[in-house]
């Protein structure tokens, strides 16, 4: 079955079985291994990616469900060089340890911040409540996202106030 979709901004045509899981498409066909599998049942969130801007568990999405849709993985959220403020915050604030939940966690955080750039701690915890982390106790993940939101807000306000020729 032919699937037309966009993966990390690139229009992509995939010829795959309709029952192929999105996580396998990404990891095996596209070699986008930043998306991780922790349980295969939608219980851990390590496989979180964005479809049309919404966080989903790629282990529960089948190929046919991405027809015509935009898929973004951790690779697609990473700039060509360096890191985004969100990624930098995770490094700086101790939002990661072993790193296996981190791509999914950052994708979930991105989905939140795209809708709500002023989340409080409870809103953050709610947004990542499907992403299990066994290392950090979550405290520093919440801090990382809070800091990232603040950085992104200040960056936005800089853009707003910048003269037009910048």
């Amino acid at each position: 079955m032919k699937i037309d979709c966009t993966i990390n901004g690139s229009p992509t045509v995939l010829d795959v079985s309709p029952m192929r899981r999105l996580i396998d498409l990404l990891r095996e066909e596209m070699k986008l291994t930043g998306t991780k599998e922790g349980c295969g049942e939608g219980e851990c969130g390590a496989c979180t990616v964005l479809i049309d801007g919404e966080a989903v568990n790629s282990c529960l999405v089948i190929a046919s469900q991405i027809q015509g849709r935009q898929v973004v993985t951790i690779e697609g959220l990473t700039p060509r060089s360096g890191l985004t403020p969100l990624q930098e915050s995770f490094v700086r604030k101790g939002g990661l340890q072993c790193g296996i939940c981190t791509p999914g966690m950052i994708v979930a955080a991105r989905a939140l911040l795209d809708k709500n750039l002023e989340p409080d701690a409870l809103e953050i915890r709610t947004a990542i409540a499907g992403n299990l982390c066994r290392c950090t106790g979550y405290h520093r993940i919440v801090d990382s996202i809070l800091e990232a939101a603040e950085l992104e807000r200040s960056r936005l306000s800089l853009v707003d106030t910048a003269p037009p020729d910048l």
Binding site: G42, G45, T48, I51, E54, A55, V56, N57, L60, V61, A108, A111, T126, A127, I128, A129, G130, N131
Partner: peptide, 9 residues
């Protein structure tokens, strides 16, 4: 219901 990612699907 479940988690944000599951509610999105």
């Amino acid at each position: 219901v479940a988690t944000p990612a599951l509610r999105n699907m």
